[in-house]
Amino acid sequence: MNALHTAAMPDQPRARTAWHTATIVEKLAETPHAVRLTLAAPTWPGSEPGTHLDVRLTAPDGYQASRSYSVASSTPAGNVVLAIDELPDGEVSPFLVQDARPGDQLEIHGPLGSYFTWLPGRSDRPVQLIAGGSGVVPLYAIALAHDAAGDPAHLQLLYSVRTPAEVFFADELAALTGPTFGLDLVYTREAPHDWPDPIGRLTRETLAARTIPASQRPHIYVCGSTGFVETITPWLVDLGHSATDVLTERFGGL
């Protein structure tokens, strides 16, 4: 029963984490309501693919607001890439998406959540990544690290997204596909012209047909909204995957 990735638990307490000053060096439109921010953070210790960090903003009167964001990339050293989806009722994401510009400074803290990581060479079992919407960000980080390391384990990403315009890292993911990385897109609202598959929410049948079967014992990483994660993970267990092979990360709430 003591299953929750006990084998991968760190034996020693991890190094003390601190706040690092970061400067926005590039801001790009990622989707119609998300931006890609590249930060220069010279003291950032680097982060394992899949982890997140806290961003803290400070107003002139000392008021602070912090939120967690997954790291899309932290290479080369001192460089951190985030992809930030604007939440309509948000406080930090609307500022980062609408108002922030290159040269602005903020603070970052982490890396955090190092249970939700994949590292090259740690296992030769295949890896199934399952993303809903902006939940793809930490999984993109894993795919990027897998490619950079030339790791031979097979990686498969099933990515559920509303429309083609809302695909995060669309060009980068397409470029990563090859013999050891496969990309499956499921469009829930609108698909490209001539798209062969049905449009609509990810179903249990599609999940079964387009993910690595339990017989191959994949490590599975699921990231999306709570609704997405709560829908997908029982199906995975029903399909025969061990609950201990399924790691989850959620966003939403803030």
């Binding site: 903003l57 400070t58 008021y63 602070q64 406080e91 500022f95 108002d99 922030a100 602005d104 709430g253």
Partner: peptide
């Protein structure tokens, strides 16, 4: 340290809220 242009939500002093926390309804 400040972040240029950030003011944050207009906030009431909330004595029941620990430092660094934001109120949610959900």
């Amino acid at each position: 340290f400040t972040t240029r242009g950030f003011s944050g939500r207009r906030r009431q002093p909330e004595t029941r809220l620990p430092p660094g926390q934001t109120l949610v309804e959900k």
